[in-house]
């Protein structure tokens, strides 16, 4: 449990090249144009680089909301 929600939100904002204030735990790709398919690729790399998480390819496409990213980290035991 070495990761905080705040750290994850900051990482997501960096991947989306958007302001941290734009990102909340309720943010979804549908409401944020910057959250495009190339941003999802960035999220895949972030999870590997920052958290040593390798997603099964089919799961990568589900990274279209903050909650989905948090759920991946929770499932890996990295987030309470």
């Amino acid at each position: 449990m070495d990761v905080t929600v705040e750290q994850v939100l900051a990482g997501i904002a960096e991947c989306l090249r958007t302001e941290r204030a734009e990102i909340t735990t309720a943010t979804t790709a549908a409401e944020l144009p910057a959250w495009d398919s190339l941003a999802v690729v960035e999220l895949v790399f972030m999870l590997q680089r920052d958290y040593d998480l390798e997603l099964p390819p089919a799961q990568a496409t589900t990274l279209r909301s903050v909650e989905a990213v948090l759920a991946v980290l929770r499932a890996a035991g990295r987030l309470a």
Binding site: S37, L38, V40, V41, L43, V44, F45, Q48, E54, L55, P56, P57, A58, Q59, A60, T61, L63
Partner: peptide, 10 residues
């Protein structure tokens, strides 16, 4: 599907 490809590649 760029996300799947990226995940596969990583």
């Amino acid at each position: 599907d760029g996300a799947e490809i990226a995940s596969f590649a990583v």
